[in-house]
């Protein structure tokens, strides 16, 4: 199974080589959770703030239970804001 991982702002530095336009296709295991992906790519806790799967916010307490499915897009930002 494959999913798309998108990392933005200062998290861009954690994208593996081969990533383009802040995203890369990744292989995911059956039952691999959002939290597991975050751990696999060594994303620091303090930089993992806004976590979206297909654009929907995943609360911190749900990330270990939310499995990533084939074709889904996981996008993560550090604390940011705008206006």
């Amino acid at each position: 199974m494959q999913a798309k991982l998108k990392l933005f702002a200062s998290l861009s530095d954690f994208l593996p080589s081969g990533a383009q336009a802040n995203q890369i296709d990744i292989d995911i295991g059956d039952g691999e959770s959002v939290a597991a992906i975050i751990e696999r790519f060594h994303l620091p806790d303090r930089l993992v703030h806004l976590v979206l799967v297909d654009g929907v916010f995943i609360k911190p307490e749900d990330r270990a239970q939310r499995d990533l499915k084939d074709g889904e897009v996981l996008a993560i930002w550090p604390p940011v804001a705008g206006g």
């Binding site: 702002a9 996008a75 930002w77 940011v80 804001a81 206006g83």
Partner: peptide
């Protein structure tokens, strides 16, 4: 670091 423009992708 990123300004308001960081919202574009969000």
């Amino acid at each position: 670091s990123f300004g308001t423009q960081v919202l574009m992708n969000v």
